[in-house]
Design a protein around this nucleic acid. Sequence first.
DNA 1: CAAATAATTGACTTTTACGTAAAAGAAAGT
DNA 2: ACTTTCTTTTACGTAAAAGTCAATTATTTG
Lengths: 128, 128
Amino acid sequence: MRKYYTITELTREFGVSTRTLRFYEDEGLIQPDRRGRTRLFRASDRHLIKEILRGRRLGFTIAEIREIIDIYKGPPGELGQLELMMKRVKEKREQLNQKRQDIEDTLAELDNVDEACLARLAELRVGT
Amino acid sequence: MRKYYTITELTREFGVSTRTLRFYEDEGLIQPDRRGRTRLFRASDRHLIKEILRGRRLGFTIAEIREIIDIYKGPPGELGQLELMMKRVKEKREQLNQKRQDIEDTLAELDNVDEACLARLAELRVGT
DNA sequence: CAAATAATTGACTTTTACGTAAAAGAAAGT
DNA sequence: ACTTTCTTTTACGTAAAAGTCAATTATTTG
């Protein structure tokens, strides 16, 4: 296990800029260690960055990503908190299911287009 | 079949503002008819709006949504165009598959959180 | 140790996707 | 005819998510 990652290592691995990672830190999504002023990212930070970028690809805003990350931070002890957390999990799940449905619908339409293309290609080959 | 939809009918149906629909027109995503100056939306426009909002939920930019919509506009006759279109379909499919994978991963993590919550709840019930 | 390389903060800029407000034309109800 | 209620155009504003640039400070390497 490596102890630390430098900022440029991570920008290369994930294809983002240093500005982006610092922005995520400003937003409180990650909290890398410091040696003097330079940031040292741990494996947990690296993992969080993965989660952030996943959320980003799915079109979640930073605020929404923060909600997801907060959820991951582990279930609290108190009953009321637990119920609140489970409610949030349910909400996120519903959002994700909606997105999944949207993806299926779009993929289905693309399938149609693809078939139409293939059909047209076949026609051309026969020589319309 | 209804002939036309007014702009406010559609804003109510889809929960978007008139500004949004006019913006989509400016962007060339939809082309409603006109009676004088007022817009008259046909069923095809309504369908396009559905597609646009689906893309939006998935985090596609307007430019990306335009690409998808252009794909739907039907396969062209010429061979080179057909091949280009099939390439685009493939690209979009890959983007969507990536998003789908992201969703599955996120849902899996939420499942873990949910289980942890349930376990903690059980502990509380027994009286830790 | 000097020079090159990498990292930092801070400020300003940009892009996207609309929001909002103003001014005015048209349609519909009373 | 009058007042609502829609709708339009034009134009400026804004929030989110970085990009870019400048001025410094560390670190590494020859």
